[in-house]
Nucleic acid binder design. Sequence first.
DNA 1: GCTGGACATGTCAATAGTGGAAGGTAAGGT
DNA 2: ACCTTACCTTCCACTATTGACATGTCCAGC
Lengths: 174, 174
Amino acid sequence: MTLRHAVLGLLATAPGSGYDLLKRFETAMSSVWTATQSQLYGELGKLESADLIEVSAEGPRGRKEYAITDAGRSELRTWLLEERPPAARRNEMLLRVYFLGEVTPEEARGFLSRHGDFAKGLVDELAALEASVDWDDSDPSLYGRLALEWGKRYAAMERDWAKWAAETIRAARG
Amino acid sequence: MTLRHAVLGLLATAPGSGYDLLKRFETAMSSVWTATQSQLYGELGKLESADLIEVSAEGPRGRKEYAITDAGRSELRTWLLEERPPAARRNEMLLRVYFLGEVTPEEARGFLSRHGDFAKGLVDELAALEASVDWDDSDPSLYGRLALEWGKRYAAMERDWAKWAAETIRAARG
DNA sequence: GCTGGACATGTCAATAGTGGAAGGTAAGGT
DNA sequence: ACCTTACCTTCCACTATTGACATGTCCAGC
């Protein structure tokens, strides 16, 4: 039931059509949550049926702009504050690490080194992104900044871990 | 197609029945990948049809022990070395952070503080786990140790980030 | 001998998510 | 006028995942 709340959250920030929301998923939120067209339009229909959102305007080309309702805002608050975010239980990269005993130590180090390079690139990208954004003092940008900082720390952690892991393999297996 | 490779990886380490694998998913791998019964037995059937695994023994209670085939090992290697792990694109906790502007700053700090406590608990748990395990020098334990270290670093990163984030909110909004 | 718990596999219905095709409208440039 | 591009929604087929239910066997302790 998370897509539902992602949509509610986006509409709580500002009303928009399915097409608008799709763009927001593809850009600002792409590293946090994603949705495809089919999923999104389906969810909008369900949310409207449940009276958590409503059509606030209609535009050209059949465009329907949705806005969150009071019931929707209340549902969003409940999700934010009363439900515990489940601990993440899937990580494809780590799954591979688990099975790295199936290849040679050299190959395993190669895998980790590629991953480390990727994380290093990400660190730079996020730093550049942060520098390029004009951080005003409004709420949305404050919380977006917290999320961006999380990304930076995550990427740095993976970069350092990958380096350490490759060295550990070398020490243990050559 | 990741469950497929998770199963192949487990069977590459040691043969086992569906029931065995389920236990391994629930314990050793629970923070890395999960699978339910229905998914697992279904996947075992598909993998057998594709000749990536085979029944290596039958036991009491209809038990079928599966073992990986050469084709399966080759598929596993390809997945490990030639496919790029996709960047994670969903994080429910971060999604909530994104929308924290919908609640008061006090509530937002409460959310982050609870999350920080959770991460702190995890750091301790993982440290205890590490201390309790008898790390011999075999391959599986080397790579399991790398994964465990990742978990420790991840939890520590989240703990520190949550603390920083709560302080940042206090500084900006009180 | 019985019984409860662990072992073991299988099916079903429902929801979540992916990818693509189809069908159409509006606006802007040439 | 024409054409391209962006806008916008809807539908469909497929795979992945969850959770519950069904069914039965073996084994240890009483």
